[in-house]
Design a protein around this nucleic acid. Structure first.
Length: 807
RNA sequence: GCGGAUGUGGCGAAAUUGGCAGACGCGCAGGAUUUAGGUUCCUGUGGGAAACCGUGCAGGUUCGAUUCCUGUCAUCCGCACCA
């Protein structure tokens, strides 16, 4: 046996896998069950893979390799998320065609993925910017349009002045542009929306069904933001008491309705327009509206959100239960997009209402027990205490829990309101004014209006240009390409214009797992039978930073495609694993922008792919954030050195009696750990077994074979090489060894014996010994621990014996 | 403010129907082999002189609690003027 040369050996196997394609997934395999493992495809950039990719890909690869040994027909594909920022920025900076950038970026990724030893089926690879892929992204948009799930509307949207493009809510989280990190402002534009809000309840069910960490589920539920309450109509009157119309509000706290002292509507609320002839200070109100349009920008910068508002004079609301006349304010703490854009304000039991009332000297009426001298008694608080109602007519004195349903009933009976459910999630604003995205398959005709491009004319190719900048007026760069923009209406044949905005870069990633099942299909997004065969993704790994966007978009699109019969399954994923971060030595996230990143190739160059794969995952669990360090990597190198030296320790065949228990336990443990992506404990189990082999100074041929298979998913190169040298074949033809239940527990086991709950001695007893046998052993050989009269014994076979002794 | 997760040696971390806390690895200490060693191998390694004490802190349930319950503190993450 010579020295192990990882550079040579790893290259040899990677080339072999490249040539012989042993990881090809087979459609409709006649005997093997399917298993679909997916790693979230990377955004194609020009750079190197960072350690995050190493952390993210390996568990998926381990699972894929493990499942193949277990006899599954595994689909483990990869591609590139290619539209969007990196390619576009490169284009803006250097003038390179983004197509070239993507091509080169993908080539680089491919080389690096291969250098890690990942077992992807490369024949199914594609980029979202490939025309024969985005043809189907456009096709899905046409279906959304056809089924009324896409609409164009003028409205206020998130807009990034820096990127000169509109953004979805999901892309503007925290008021920051997800593309550049700049401040997002509100701007009025024509916007394509997808009716995602309609799917809120279904998305919540998706979240419930998918196997995923609780914190990820919670942040999705949070984003969907379900809340149950009531819509209630308040009559509006002019100052003479003449009926004008109704103001509808949404509240989750109907129990506080007797405490309403003012109404507040969003400045944009259309009630201001419809009742403008009755408003005596219309100028003031409109000026306030104008001011708030510009305000959101600085608001977000200031920590102090000072309440502002403007009384709408000349109109009053009437509390339907008390008949009390109350003032109406326009106030920007009320959001136009949520509920009805209007609220009933109860300053004693809502902190915002309290602050507003204080500023505008509005009276307070307390309707629930608690101290409201300095602040409101909030819902959580009075619900927790189940406080009693005050000043609430016939409900006064009742605890909240009792009063609430009765008030609801009363309001409903009087025909003043009804129970409703609200969601914070909004429709998905779906267009961007950028070059590098899917063109919309839509034509505007002066005579026919919005006309979809006929399906036979797809894809609408993204035209080439060398000017990638948006226009000064905010139009997309495509608007400048006149001979592309001007076209004929497919319906009437007259002059028409194309939609010049492009889709957001999330479009292509909202259905890509479906395409892997049939990536070259030219007549459907994928063949229905193939979709049926591969079904939902069994295990989807990847980052957590996109969880409220990518995963919810994925649920949304697949729900829709399922409902129109384009795909056979409603759930895209059965299990979603969120990869933890790799942190630097300061505990900060490794990223390109903070320049603290260690490149995957650097680690592979120094130590080899097998060591890199194992070390990253020996540092901690897959879903945990783990600080990166080279410290300790010698633990892995010396382990693999010992594995290599096993070749000199082979003695005999079969499974030796010395190793039969350890090996069976190892097979069980490693299999379970791979299934759960607990790679760190799998590695430690393999190390423990290795220790035993070293102590015993031999391993049999069959033990070695099993051991190599167990280790192969983690360290595919060294195990393939050893297998070939020793067994003259390809380890990939092996099957996962089976363990035998009867060899998991040895005949003689150690049993801890406690005296009064404290460990006294560990004794050897036969496996599954009865209490009587154990007591006899103690009396015969360990009499000294019995220091008094045994008054009680607790015996759990194989686990513990606890003796309660009275002295 | 709301919601979620986490809290264990010098370090990364193990431990689930409640049953020997700290597996495995690093580091550290001592020893062996070696001309040499940032090599390899062996031994030890939670604290404490010890009785004992130890899983953020304080209680509780239990024969027995890192694990279950109540309260509390800290850190991280998500959302946030959502009525």
């Amino acid at each position: 046996m010579g020295e192990y040369n990882f550079k040579e050996v790893e290259k040899k196997w990677q080339e072999k896998w490249d040539k012989t394609k042993p990881f090809k997934a087979i459609d409709f395999h006649p005997t093997k069950p399917k298993y679909y493992v997916l790693y979230e495809f990377p955004n194609v950039s020009g750079g190197n893979l960072h350690l995050g990719h190493l952390k993210g890909t390996i568990p998926a690869d381990v699972l894929a390799r493990y499942k193949r040994f277990c006899g599954y027909n595994v689909l483990f594909p990869i591609g590139g998320d290619a539209f969007g920022l990196p390619a576009e920025n490169a284009a803006l900076k250097t003038g390179t065609d983004p197509r070239e950038f993507v091509k080169n970026g993908m080539k680089k990724f491919k080389e690096q993925f291969k250098a890690i030893g990942l077992s992807f089926d490369w024949d199914r690879s594609f980029c979202t910017s490939d025309p024969d892929y985005y043809k189907w992204t456009q096709w899905i948009f046409l279906q959304l349009l056809k089924h009324g799930k896409a609409y164009k509307q003028r409205g206020f949207v998130n807009y990034c002045p820096n990127c000169k493009t509109t953004l979805s809510n999901e892309d503007s989280q925290g008021g920051k542009c997800d593309r550049c990190g700049g401040e997002v402002i509100q701007k009025e534009r024509n916007v394509w929306y997808l009716k995602m809000k309609e799917y809120s309840e279904k998305l919540l069910q998706n979240v419930d069904r998918v196997q995923m960490a609780e914190n990820l589920k919670q942040s999705q539920r949070n984003w969907i933001g379900k809340s149950e309450g009531m819509k209630v109509k308040f009559k509006l009157e002019d100052k003479n008491g003449k009926d004008l119309s109704n103001l509808e509000i949404f509240t989750t706290c109907i129990e506080t309705i007797y405490g309403v002292t003012f109404m507040a509507v969003a400045p944009e609320n259309k009630i201001i327009d419809t009742l403008k002839t009755h408003i005596t200070n219309l100028d003031e109100v409109l000026a306030y509206r104008k001011k708030t349009e510009l305000r959101s920008e600085f608001d977000r910068k200031s920590d102090q959100k000072e309440k502002t508002g403007c009384e709408i004079k000349g109109i009053y609301a009437v509390n339907p239960l008390t008949g009390r006349k109350i003032p109406v304010y326009a106030a920007d703490f009320v959001l136009n997009g949520y509920g009805t854009g209007a609220v009933m304000a109860v300053p004693t039991h809502d902190q915002r209402d309290y602050e507003f009332a204080e500023k505008f000297n509005i009276p307070l009426i307390q309707v629930l027990e608690g101290d409201v001298s300095k602040q409101a008694v909030e819902k959580g608080e009075y619900l927790a205490n189940n406080s009693k109602l005050l000043n609430s007519a016939e409900f006064s004195g009742m605890p909240v829990k009792e009063a609430k349903p009765k008030i609801i009933e009363k309001v409903e009976k009087l025909g003043l309101g009804e129970k409703v459910t609200n969601y914070q999630m909004q429709d998905w604003s779906f267009n961007r004014q950028r070059y590098w995205g899917e063109p919309f398959p839509v034509i505007f005709c002066p005579h026919c209006g919005v006309v979809p491009v006929p399906e036979k004319d797809l894809p609408v190719l993204l035209p080439r240009t060398n000017d990638y900048n948006p226009s000064l007026n905010g139009d997309s760069p495509l608007a400048k390409i006149k001979d592309w923009v001007n076209c004929k209406c497919p319906q009437c044949g007259r002059d028409a214009k194309r939609e010049t905005d492009t889709m957001p870069n999330w479009a292509g990633s909202s259905w890509y797992w479906l395409r892997y099942t049939d990536p070259h299909n030219d007549s459907a997004l994928a063949d229905y039978e193939k979709l049926k065969y591969w079904g939902s993704v069994d295990c989807y790994t990847g980052g957590t930073e996109h969880i409220t966007r990518h995963v919810l978009y994925a649920f949304f699109w697949q729900n829709f495609l399922y409902e129109i019969g384009a795909v056979p399954t409603r759930d895209p994923f059965i299990r979603k694993m969120g990869s933890g971060l790799i942190l630097d030595d300061q505990g900060k996230k490794m990223s390109k922008s903070s320049k603290n990143g260690v490149s995957t190739m650097e680690v592979i160059d120094k130590y080899g792919a097998d060591v890199a794969r194992m070390h990253v995952h020996f540092l901690g669990g897959y879903e945990d954030n783990t600080p990166w360090t080279y410290q300790g990597i010698t633990g892995i190198t010396s382990f693999l050195d010992k594995v290599w030296s096993l070749q000199d320790m082979i003695k005999g065949e079969g499974i030796s009696k010395e190793h039969i228990f350890a090996l069976n336990r190892l097979i069980k443990k490693v299999g379970e750990d791979y299934e759960n992506l607990h790679l760190n404990t799998a590695i430690s189990a393999l190390m423990i077994f290795m220790k035993k082999i070293k102590d015993d100074k031999f391993i049999t041929l069959d033990e070695l074979k099993a051991f190599l298979v167990l280790l192969n998913p983690l360290a595919p190169h060294i195990t393939s090489e050893m297998y070939e040298k020793v067994f003259k074949g390809d380890i990939l033809t092996e099957t996962w060894p089976k363990y035998d239940e009867k060899y998991l527990v040895e005949d003689v086991v150690s049993l801890p014996v406690q005296i009064n709950g404290k460990l006294a001695k560990v004794i050897s007893v036969p496996n599954e010994a009865t209490e009587q046998t154990v007591m006899e052993i103690i009396k015969a050989s360990h009499q000294s621990i019995l220091t008094g009269e045994v008054i009680k014994t607790i015996y759990i076979p194989g686990k513990i014996l606890n003796l309660i002794i009275k002295k």
